[in-house]
Structures are given as C-alpha cells and as structure tokens.
Nucleic acid binder design. Structure first.
Lengths: 127, 127
DNA sequence: CCTGAACATACCTTGACACGTATATGCTCT
DNA sequence: AGAGCATATACGTGTCAAGGTATGTTCAGG
C-alpha cells in the first residue's frame, strides 16, 4: 500500500474517516457504528495511521483515533491540477467557497453573496 | 471497479490523467510517453472512460482522449468534508484560490484584493 | 481486395489485499 | 496475581484487478 490514493480506495477506510470527522473515536465505537469486526477495524486503522491519515492516543485500554490533515492536503494538491477542467469554473469556485464558509470556525470569515442554484451536476454512473 | 477512488488508485491511470491535462492525446502518444504497452493503455482508458474521467473522439484510425470534469468534482466533494481539518484553514483557502486564479482562463474572473497579513477581503461582489 | 496501422478485446497468470478465525498483548480492577 | 475487557497481530483463504500475449476490428491507401 503505497500512495494515499490506494488508502482511500477502500470503502471501509473512507467510512472510518467519515466517522472521525465528527470527533475522535475508539476502536470499539467504530466497530459498532460501522458493524465491522474488531480485527478489520484495527487493521484499517493501522493502514490509515501508517499513511498519516489518523493518529491515536492511549486512554487506558482504549485507543482514541482522530484525523490528521497531511494526506488530505496531498490529495487536494493532486486534484488542483485538474481544477481548470471543471465545467463551470466560477460555479466550482463558489461551491468551494460556500463549503469553506460553512466549515470555517468564523474566525476570519469572508462574507459573500448568495448565488442562484442552477448547478448542473452529472452523475453518470453505470453498473 | 466501482468508485472514482478505485479508479485513481492505479498509478498508471493517474499518469494518463496527468498527460491529458496539457492536451488531448491519442492512444499511441500516451503509449510512447508513458512507455506502456498498447493494450495496457487501452484498458486503462476504457476504465477511465466508463468512470467518466475521459471521453474520446474518432480521428481516422486514431482515437483522441480528453478529460471530463465530472469525477474530479465528485472527488472534491468528498474531500470537502475534511477541509476543516487542514492545519491553517484560511491558508488552505488562500492556496486554493491562488491555484484557481492561475488556472482559470480569465474568462469570468472574480476580482479579489491583495491578501496581506490582515487577510481582509472585500464583500464578495460578482462582476 | 489486400496490407498495414491504430486501437480494442479475450484469455491467462500472478500477486495483492481484505476478511475471518484464532491468538497474543496490554491495561484495570479487585 | 488473576480475571476480563479493549486492541493488536498471525495465519489461511478467496477474490479481483493489472499485465502480457494473442487476436479481433476498423480504417486508409495502393
């Protein structure tokens, strides 16, 4: 398992990362919420930890896992090369900024006006 | 091969996508630049096409492949959930905007003022 | 039509990895 | 110290995808 791309290729790992967005979690909590067996959770966490996606601290017998930013940044850096191909450039920019606004803890907020929602979004998915 | 994540997990596929950033390419051109065998290139292109990463047009015996924006958008949407974990939120935003600026073909540009230590920005006004 | 070029597809082999079961390690409490 | 919980690791197994070789298909030109 080499790159960050292979790490997030696994659905269960993405699920774990998704859980950790809300707050740090113990192995057992992850196990129950995602209905995976304990060894599976531990192994995925091991992979995620080696890749720098998460870190853990010890709390008695438990280990608490939380996200680390590095690999996500790396993914975004890769994606950046392709941003100029997105359909509507300005729309994409606006979408991005809207999300940032929501998730940024109001420290240095940048207010912006609202935009019409005529976003076309193709979900071309086949079996 | 289900998700977009599995698609980009393959290094050769990422290499192909990287090539197509500059311009559309034929199978043979990709084959030579990446030093892969022709069937390998064709198979990866097939996967990329099914997933919506690329599209192709016919030019005599050649097929020209170029990028399509959809899946990249999807990847970015996923990444968005984790943006708030990146070390310096505003810095990440600034980096992102800088990239958007230099990669956007100056069509409908959103003007922004200088970013100094103050990091204050004008009320978003669309032009 | 025949040939060669450009590309696609079929089949096969191989290796990686995700999972389950079983077992090991470590910590807490009595 | 011993019991029991929480987590990690070892091992065996099955699946799936990537690559190679061979072959099919389409097109252009003589």
């Amino acid at each position: 398992m080499e790159s960050v791309f292979e790490i997030i290729a696994e659905p269960n790992r993405r699920a774990i990362l998704g859980l950790l967005v809300s707050s740090e979690q113990s192995v057992g909590e992850i196990e129950r919420q995602l209905r995976m067996t304990q060894p599976t959770v531990s192994k995925h966490l091991r992979v995620l930890r080696d890749a720098g996606f998460v870190e853990s601290t010890v709390d008695a017998q438990r280990r608490l896992y939380r996200l680390k930013p590095g690999p996500f940044q790396e993914l975004d850096d890769w994606l950046a090369r392709f941003r100029r191909f997105w359909s509507a450039h300005v729309d994409a920019l606006e979408r991005h900024l809207d999300r940032m606004d929501q998730s940024t803890p109001t420290k240095t907020k940048i207010s912006r006006i609202r935009r019409g929602s005529n976003r076309e979004r193709d979900k071309g998915k086949k079996k």
